[in-house]
Structures are given as C-alpha cells and as structure tokens.
Amino acid sequence: MSKYKLVHYINQFYGGIGGEEKADIPAEKRAGAIGPGLALNQAFGDEAEIVSTIICGDSWFNENLEEAKKTVLEMVREDQPDVFIAGPAFNAGRYGVACGAISEAVKNELGIPVVTGMYIENPGADMYREKVYIIETKNSAADMRKAAPKMAKLALKLAKGEEIGASAEDNYLPNGIRKNFFEKKRGSERAVEMLLAKINGKAYTTEYPMPDFDRVDPQPAIKDLSKATVALVTSGGIVPKGNPDRIESSSATKFGEYDITGVEDLTAETYETAHGGYDPVYANQDADRVLPVDVMREFEREGIIGKLHNKFYTTTGNGTAVASAKKFAEEIARRLIADGVDAILLTST
C-alpha cells in the first residue's frame, strides 16, 4: 500500500534556521521531514509520510501576506499532497496566524484538507478555528510529544476521507459546529464529576459554553397608532385548517404567509396550530388566542389602529434553529416593509 503524502509548513525557528533574527527569511522548500515533522512521521507509522517541508520566516509571511501565500501555495501545488499540515505553533502568535492563514488558503484554493495546531490563547486560534481544523496544544513545544499523535490521527482521517468526529473526540478546537458523539460516561455521572471539580476549585470544561446573545433594541414608539398599519406575526404555528404548506410541528424549515382579507374571526373550522410544543387544544378551539385577529378587527373598527395588514406570517418556534428563525425574519421583514406596514404584533407561545 502506498503511503499518503503530506506537505508540512513550519517557521524558521522549528526549521533550525534561527530565532527572531531570521524571522524575515522567505519561504523555502526542502525534501522530507524536518524538526517537528520527524515526530509527525513517527506518529504516521506506515500510513503516511511528509514528502517535503516548507520553512518560512514568521515576519516575512505576515508582512508579505499575499506574496507569501502565493509562494507557499505554489510549493504545495507542486507536490500534490493528500493533506497539508502546519505547525503546531503552540503559543507563538505570528507563527499561529501564519499557520491559520496558509492552511485556510491551501484548503480553499487547492482543495486539499488541512490540519494545524496551536494553543487556545494563540491569536491565530480565534481567527481561524471556524475555518480550519486546529488541534489544541499546550503553550510550549514540550507538548509536541502529545500533539503529534493528535495531529497525525486527524490528518490520516482526512486523507482517508473518514467522517470527522466531534471536537472533543478528534481534539480540535471547537469550530462553531455542534456535533453529536457518545461519551464514555453517562451525562449524570459527568455532571457529578463536573460538580465536584467546581466545588473543589479544580479545572473542568463545560460541554456547552454560553453564547453571546444577540439583543435587539426596540424601535421608537409609534406616535399615532390610529394611522398605523399593523401586521400579525407569530411563532405559535397558527395556520389555515389542514396546514396547507405543511409547516413542521418542530424545527420549522419554512414560514407561511396567509391572506386574512375579510376574515373577522379565526374559528375551529378555519384555523388551527401546527405547533408541537404546547397544548394545542385551546389554540385549535379558537386560534385568536394565539393570533388575535378578532381583537385587531375590533381595534380597526374603533379606530384604535389604522388598519390590520391583510396578510399574516406564521411559523413554529418549537425547536427551530435560531439561524432559520433569523432567515425567516429577514424575509418577513422585507415583505412587511415593502407592503408599507408600520408595526407588527409578534405573538409567541
């Protein structure tokens, strides 16, 4: 069986050329593995080998970014490797950024799978973790013994086209894509262990870091409601009876737009809810409880609002991904603005 071929990118220090004083050397390519590449080759065993090593000064790369990328890409292209591997950069900032940038370029422009490695606080980690696989290392080269097998394992999986596991399984920095896998212990046991660590002031890793929430400032109040066109929008799943567009009861992939011209009241015969996340009995008896068309018509007659917009928009919030909800909202807002709607009453459940 022939071995998978890899090209390895390292900086001037790991290439044995010199320290900071040599950081301005341009990229050069040498045959075979050098420095950290030897540890990687060892980890690959019989399955893969580094065919060439590109050594590049950190300053030269970062100060001549476009030219550097072009030069290195050409060197990689010549060897047609199965996988490109960079670093690991540990906590070296410019080296980390270079590893991230060149890995991204090789992946996007040459279509070759890439692996790099660095310490979580390396500035390159935040810049590139969502773009390329970055194996998490400790902050110094002393970790090479442990980092090499991790990088090699992921590189081999990529070479073979195998499915990549969750970040915790394949040791890469979380890349913003949540992926399921089976832990060794059940959740309750992990919770007890995490609690004991937290109580005792020991290190633990949360399985889901809290996201930054996207807060939206409210619009200024409407000065004269009696002249405003108001639309109804709901995530409570109210749809014409029979759910003509088959909006899902959970994890909605679409929203519905329905005309309510001349509709004074939603009844059990005409409307229902498609939502699977709450007791549907009361909404099915009288869908106005979720989408208050009856009250809005009253307000319209009494002149409290100018008029009720003749279309309403609906989806099910139940289990629906925030990204989907955002997409629906952008399209709904576009249509409402185009129709000259001044305000919406947004009902949830």
Partner: peptide, 25 residues
C-alpha cells in the same frame, strides 16, 4: 441542544454567564 441540522445555531433559547458548567445530552 437544538443547534440546527447543521449544528451551527445557538443551542439554547436562553443563556447566562452564570451557567458556566453545562452537561449536554
């Protein structure tokens, strides 16, 4: 979590910094 079929969405409908020790199913 309900992170979407592609795993790219925010997983919970609410969040707070106090929730710094989470186990997920």
């Amino acid at each position: 979590e309900y992170a979407g079929q592609d795993g790219k969405s925010q997983s919970l409908a609410d969040a707070d910094v106090a929730a710094d020790a989470v186990v997920t199913g």
